[in-house]
Design a binder for these strands. Structure first.
Lengths: 332, 332
DNA sequence: AGCAGAAGTTGACAAATGACAATATCGGCG
DNA sequence: CGCCGATATTGTCATTTGTCAACTTCTGCT
């Protein structure tokens, strides 16, 4: 354990009083390789180590973010499918990843979403974060490759009670941590038992302040949930099964930012909805940059509902989903 | 063949109305390779082309800036020598490239400078640009890997008459062009024949406006010139040989932004200096981010003069020069 | 001091990559 | 219609790179 600690310290950028020479070698190897285009053997010779060591250095340089590969999202917007999506749904940006490993779809979408978000971030941004498997995947994989100062990450809906491994708090915490942002968690349950209690709670100074931050976010990251039997909403403990069935009976087709919408994106309100703590659909539309990451055959309808109602400015999905969306929108 | 058809349809389905169809394959190859870490052979199979084609796609993706490798300048600041430089000369940032091909030193420094500058740029920046071989090398190699809007590039000293291939106009034009910035060239000669004429010219509305821009720059990029017999100043036609000799006689050790400074960075003024059109040394110090790129054995003294007088906030050099600087500063 | 375990390094081999000449495809144009 | 030149693609081979088990060095602990 003690040893592991030691190595951690070496890896962690801060906390080191004296920068070891070790960092230098890694930096140099990285520069000689990626900037000067020398081969690993040449670098090995110059640094007087074996080539295998250079391989390790370069690996570490990538892991530590000393070097990183940037894929231009602007170029992503120029692909045919991305354009079609943008035209069909009036999006400001779309990024479509090629089909690949089915199993890893969420991971891969997360990677793409992370790149798009990271690319957009600017000094002083306040970034709202919803929750879900996909949002977590984004949070898990985002990383800053350039200095962006003064970021705030704010959880936009109350914390869920379910023991899901993609809770709002978790998504927010991880994301903020990875980009060195101030982290603001909403200190309230996602759903309260009465409308009155919700009003009381929201009147608390702490909550007022936090909700102010939510409303001042200039970007937001969210996914799309469907309503199927195995869907996330049903697992996340947002409401009793009957309550969700009730939503469905009244036309609910998708869930975004913890709110239910019908096939055309209209809010499906009701008593339960009024007990939810979090950003509302109307408030969502006031945020300038609304980044949505979603994909998968089971979500097509839900995504169409979301996109049609203009809840999204920047959409990230996979090829198969994109084509299904375009086809479906065409026939509609 | 039938298989190939399928992929062809994806690539060039409808009429070639848009030249971007082609981008799709390149974009996909780039994504699958750099984001999904697939091997070129796997990608080739999926895209139904030969692996060699994938190699080409990836090459083009890099050339077109669809993918780019970023080397974190912050990490560069952590190397031992960079730290030593920062401590010794009170710099905000230093980037030291490892020794390499002697001949290509200017190119390699240009690459490093370009990365540092590109990394710093923010929306709305106004970037002052001096001139010289090194500055040109930066301009030649800079490229935007993320969207930065509303940039202005402004030439900070008058245009030289010499036919040098690194004139102020050229440096400014190339740099602005490569980063899609507004380009403002100073429409005046570097040196006028009388102080009075200079005053007259600078009173012109056009020039007034341009000089205002110069003074409002929030970043500046410049190199360091030495005074040796083969030095740039003597070739650039900034003044008659006698005039330059006169500067030297009065202690001139280096030239930055077209102005002469002594061994401790003090301005070496005089009649000639008063006829120069361009930013002054005092004005230089008012610019928040002052990026200086310089290296090479012949420039050690000149660089020390520059660094000691706090003209620089961010300094880019090579290992050999850095070590010489630190050694020299230690003995002084 | 001596030992245990982890981190760092190495050599050797298999796999992946880059280079390039040869070949195929496409869009005019006589 | 067929030929031309330009552009895109491919097969092949030498080089470069990643992997992995063995080895060395270092560190903390008894």
């Amino acid at each position: 354990m003690a040893k592991a600690k030691t190595s951690d310290r070496t890896d962690a950028e801060k906390g080191m009083l004296v920068p070891t020479e070790f960092d230098d070698s890694i930096m140099w190897a990285a520069w000689l390789y990626y900037a000067d285009q020398m081969t690993q053997s040449e670098i090995a010779k110059r640094l007087n180590v074996s080539r295998a060591t250079i391989v390790n250095y370069l690996q570490e340089a990538r892991e530590r973010g000393i070097v990183s590969v940037h894929i231009n999202p602007k170029a992503g917007n120029r692909t045919r499918v991305a354009r079609a999506l943008m035209d069909t749904f009036g999006l400001a940006g779309a990024f479509v990843i090629p089909d690949g490993d089915e199993q890893a779809l969420v991971q891969r979408l997360g990677d793409a979403g992370a790149r798009v978000l990271a690319d957009q971030m600017e000094d002083g941004d306040t970034i709202g974060v919803a929750w879900g498997r996909t949002v977590l995947a984004v949070a898990d994989q985002i990383s800053l490759t350039r200095p962006v100062r003064n970021l705030t990450v704010v959880q936009v809906s109350g914390s869920s009670t379910g023991e899901a491994d993609f809770s709002p708090e978790l998504c927010t915490s991880i994301l903020s941590n990875r980009i060195h942002a101030r982290c603001v968690n909403l200190l309230a349950p996602a759903v309260l038992s009465t409308k009155a209690l919700k009003a009381l709670l929201l009147a608390e100074p702490v909550l007022l302040k936090q909700m102010d931050l939510v409303h001042s976010a200039n970007r937001i990251l969210f996914g799309v949930g469907d309503i199927g039997p195995k869907s996330t909403v049903r697992q996340a403990g947002i409401g009793e099964p009957e309550e969700i069935d009730d939503y469905v009976a009244r036309g609910a087709t998708a869930v975004i930012i913890g709110r239910f919408i019908d096939a055309h994106g209209g809010a499906v309100g009701g008593a339960h909805d009024e007990r939810i703590v979090g950003i509302t659909l109307d408030e969502l539309k006031n945020i300038p940059s609304r980044i949505c990451v979603a994909g998968g055959p089971s979500k097509i309808k839900a995504i169409i509902a979301t996109l049609e109602a203009d809840y999204v400015t920047h959409f990230i999905t996979d090829m198969a989903t994109a084509e299904a969306l375009i086809a479906a929108a065409g026939t509609a």
